[in-house]
Design a protein around this nucleic acid. Structure first.
Length: 550
RNA sequence: GCGCCCGUAGCUCAACGGAUAGAGCAACGGCCUUCUAAGCCGUGGGUUGCAGGUUCGAGUCCUGCCGGGCGCGCCA
């Protein structure tokens, strides 16, 4: 296997550092891509970092490192020391062409890594209780969670996509009674519909369903069971349908109820044994302050009922017990105050909380007709995720939600959503893919055996745009790694944008299919195929379709 | 009062502590008789909220302020 440029240089640098006998413990060997081309393809600041540690001149160390690099001249064009002590590398076109061969050989596996091989990951996301349709806010959660799961699969993890829900408690009772009242209303009874009940039209739809099924036989039904169960199943089906439109499918729907019988009480007694529990005002408190928390928290109310924290803790313990090496929670910013206490409890119970990654994304603000719309399932003044998908399509929805960092607030102007979608950046990526597909079709129609591209002599690629594109394609596995380390799908989008840009630029300047020069045609077609592979693999990770035609 | 996030071009947002802060949209000017113009090339647009600090180097880290968002319950 021919390594990526970063991998190659990193290895060479490590060998050189070993030879000099410099300890690089705790110093990360970073190979940066300089913005300015004059500084080469990659640069490292390692000499400066070492200098700081050992108190020597950075350039002197850089010199020593460079002197000990065992580099193949046919792969590395130039090594330079610059500025305060950067070491700059420029690789040869030959290097990048080797990488194009590598892409063609690996095909749809190009970019897959072995970091997570043999490890199990659990990604919990969406986790909306079945009280109503998914909101646009859930959409961000869904897109993030599913894409992060994709990234983990791409780096080798065995991934479980999990949805945690609670179909018990007060909100569900209100939901059931909301349905019951709408049911009576449809039967012509006078009802008073409380303001705090669910206001959405979907409640009436469920009530209608009950009339279709049971007529007026539930008129005097005092038990809410049938209303609750019907509402829950209808809403859950609806949620699943919406998620399916986004290409999302869960492996496990975990019911919070499963924890109540036994598991939460085990948590309490374990914590008690370790001295993290005390009683006050008839309630059981968790000593969060003993573990760095700002205030102690109630785990068991004076009524004997658990607070929401307790099942949360028990649930995470279950995940540990189920053998996951990596446990990811995708939460909205409203959970910001909740997870530290859960982690503290897990720590107290001696679980390795470094396995737990809590990903908090900032809120989606919806603007409609110039007004900020507060999302509330109960008030029904929201735009559903389903409506949004129908309006702009699943690709645009996923892209829209992924195309910013988790920490950034997301302004969603509904009036502009559709308009923007017509000029949406997602099409820029898809267009590059479709364009390549079109070129390949054209080549085939012109009687060229596209399969032969693997045997092409790619040394014929010498134009700047060709090498620039090859350079970028070479990086894809590095980018997947960065996306994995940061758990930020945005990294992949930014990269694909660069690839698409490089491809369009190449396409514009250089004709691919040219019957007068079959050698060059085959070489360029190979480059196109490689670009298509990279774009397709990237879009696959993002869960965005890869059109052959647009 | 306390905790977390944000503040970068007119708008929406990028930028592992690196060298001259970048894209898209919007504005302006070019490019289709040959493989997809959903594209390409170019122009204009910035005191990175403010003030200090850390260091070879700060949009990025630290402190304080200003402004916006989300939380801080014996609700979930």
């Amino acid at each position: 296997m021919f390594p990526s440029a970063r991998e190659y240089l990193r290895k060479k640098l490590k060998t050189a550092l070993d030879k000099i006998g410099i300890q690089v413990n705790g110093i990360e060997l970073i190979l940066d891509k300089p913005k300015n081309e004059q500084y080469g393809d990659f640069a490292t600041n390692i000499a400066m970092l070492i200098a700081k540690k050992v108190g020597r001149e950075p350039r002197e160390i850089a010199n020593e490192i460079v002197a000990n690099l065992e580099i193949e001249p046919e792969l590395v064009e130039k090594v330079e020391i610059a500025g305060p002590g950067f070491i700059n590398f420029k690789l040869t076109p030959k290097f990048y062409i080797q990488r194009v061969y590598e892409i063609l050989n690996q095909g749809e596996n190009f970019g897959k890594l072995a970091i997570g091989k043999g490890k199990k990951a659990n990604v919990e996301f969406v986790s909306a209780n079945p009280t109503g349709p998914l909101t646009v806010g859930h959409g961000r959660n869904a897109a993030l969670g599913d894409t992060i799961a994709n990234i983990l699969e791409w780096v080798g993890y065995d991934v479980t996509r999990e949805y945690y829900f609670n179909n018990a408690g007060r909100q569900m009772r209100i939901l059931a009674d909301s349905v019951r009242l709408r049911y009576l209303e449809l039967l012509g009874e006078e009802i008073v519909y409380p303001e705090e009940y669910y206001q959405g039209e979907y409640i009436k739809d469920i009530a209608k369903l009950l009339i279709d099924k049971y007529g007026d036989s539930l008129k005097n039904e005092k038990d809410l069971k049938i209303f609750k169960e019907t509402a829950e199943s209808v809403i859950f089906e609806d949620i699943k349908r919406t998620l399916a439109k986004l290409g999302i499918k869960f492996d496990v729907f975990y019911n919070e109820d499963w924890l109540y019988e036994k598991k939460i009480w085990e948590v309490v007694s374990e914590l008690e044994k370790l001295g993290y529990i005390y009683e006050k005002d008839g309630a059981k408190w968790f000593k969060a302050t003993k573990l760095g928390g700002g205030q102690d928290k109630v785990l068991v109310k004076s009524t004997g009922e658990p607070t929401y924290r307790l099942p949360d803790i028990a649930y995470h313990i279950e995940k540990f017990k189920r053998g996951f090496d990596l446990i990811i929670d995708v939460f909205g910013a409203d959970h910001i105050a909740e997870y530290p206490d859960v982690l503290r409890a897990l720590e107290a119970l001696k679980y390795d909380t470094s396995k737990v990654k809590v990903l908090i994304y900032q809120f989606v603000t919806i603007v409609k007709d110039g007004e900020v719309v507060k999302m509330s399932t109960r008030k029904a003044n929201y735009i559903t995720l389903d409506e949004l998908i129908d309006e702009v399509g699943p690709d645009v929805v996923r892209f829209f939600f992924l195309n910013r960092s988790r920490d950034a607030h997301l302004n969603f102007d509904l009036n502009l959503a559709k308009k923007q979608s017509e000029e949406n950046p997602v099409y820029y990526l898809q267009y590059a893919h479709a364009r390549i597909a079109s070129i390949l079709r054209f080549a085939k129609d012109s009687g060229i055996d596209v399969e032969r591209t693997r045997d092409a002599n790619m040394e014929l690629l010498v134009e700047k745009e060709e090498i620039d594109l090859a350079k970028l394609l070479n990086e894809f596995p590095d980018i997947v790694e960065v996306a994995y380390l940061s758990l930020e799908p945005l990294k992949i989008i930014n990269y694909l944008n660069e690839v698409a840009e490089a491809f369009h630029s190449f396409y514009h300047r250089h004709r691919v299919v040219n019957s007068n020069d079959m050698g060059l045609t085959l070489a360029r077609l190979s480059l196109c195929v490689a670009a298509k592979i990279v774009i397709a693999n990237g879009l696959k990770i993002l869960g965005i379709s890869r059109p052959e035609k647009m």
